[in-house]
């Protein structure tokens, strides 16, 4: 059985609890053993580092040291977590910096040796579980669905940090997952852009213009729903969708799925179990279409 050190991230345990529960449901179904890092801290999301970059680094070195100590690969379920973890891991290649950081980990018996390769559930599905196994688990093919991928910045940029060169499948991981589950992946400009969430409280107009523009584009290209590996994107695309519609003055009605929800649906899990009833944008029409 494949075992992972699991960092759920704050949003999956806060404003997007359906991501947390659907991840656990899907992992169980796939026979993945997730050991939750209950003592770990928020990645800082690039917000702690606005004023305290060093503090953010220490917190992330600590999380990675925990995963190292358990000798388990680290799994994130949020694009932002992956991005922040990987950028930190990149900095910790500098041995002097690691020594300085490790001072703060020593009192709790931790030391980061620089071996962790933080990955998103989405990558783990393709890289560890494998397309064939996923394909064999499909009970409810999603042939009726046209789905728009929405990556979230940190799962597509910067390419160097994500190691696209050595892992080319990461480039279109979402499209691959969508297609193996039987659905059609639609292409639109906004799919690799920013949802605008980070500036929601600073500049609501700009933030919601971004979200609204991408939603409108995907909807007009025939998307039945979007799929995102980032719960922060989910907040701006789902919870803020009614306001985004007002800002861009369009009708929007586009359900937004988390990655494990999509996979769970295809594997025949119940919408309730996957938290699909906990969305702001109603998912009923989508569920009816696939007879769920």
């Amino acid at each position: 059985m494949s075992k992972y050190a699991f960092w759920p991230g704050c949003v999956a345990q806060g404003a997007a609890p359906e991501l947390y529960t659907s991840t656990l449901a899907v992992a169980e179904h796939l026979g993945m053993d997730l050991v939750e890092l209950e003592a770990a801290a928020c990645t800082g999301a690039g917000i702690i580092s606005d004023g305290e970059p060093y503090l953010q680094d220490v917190l992330n070195a600590r999380t990675m040291a925990m995963s190292e100590q358990m000798d388990l690969p680290l799994m994130d379920i949020c694009s932002t977590c992956v991005g922040v973890h990987r950028l930190a891991a990149e900095k910790f290649r500098d041995v002097d910096y690691r020594i300085r950081i490790n001072h703060h980990l020593a009192p709790e018996g931790l030391e980061y040796r620089g071996t962790v390769d933080p990955r998103h559930l989405l990558w783990i599905l393709l890289e560890d579980v494998g397309i064939d196994k996923i394909n064999s688990m499909v009970k409810r093919p999603l042939e009726e669905l046209n789905l728009g991928p929405f990556y979230g910045c940190y799962l597509v940029r910067p390419e160097r940090t994500l190691e696209f060169d050595t892992h080319p499948t990461r480039r279109d991981s979402l499209e691959q997952l969508i297609e193996v589950l039987g659905a059609t992946s639609i292409t639109y400009d906004g799919m690799t852009k920013c949802c605008g969430f980070p500036i929601l409280t600073m500049n609501k107009q700009n933030s919601l213009t971004m979200a609204g523009t991408h939603l409108d584009e995907a909807q007009s290209k025939g998307a039945d729903a979007l799929v995102t590996p980032c719960p922060l994107c989910h907040l701006n695309l789902d919870a803020q969708q009614p306001d985004a519609a007002k800002v861009i003055d369009r009708n929007l009605n586009l359900p937004i799925l988390h990655v494990p929800q999509l996979l769970g649906l295809a594997m025949g899990l119940e919408p309730e179990t996957l938290g699909l009833t906990r969305h702001v944008v109603d998912t009923n029409r989508l569920l009816n279409k696939i007879g769920a």
Binding site: V11, C42, G44, A45, I48, D50, E52
Partner: peptide
């Protein structure tokens, strides 16, 4: 925003969106 975020993480180890 930065300060609020920090104080949440300091208190609970996690972000406090509320």
């Amino acid at each position: 925003h930065h300060k609020g975020f920090m104080s949440g993480v300091r208190k609970r180890g996690r972000l406090d969106e509320m």
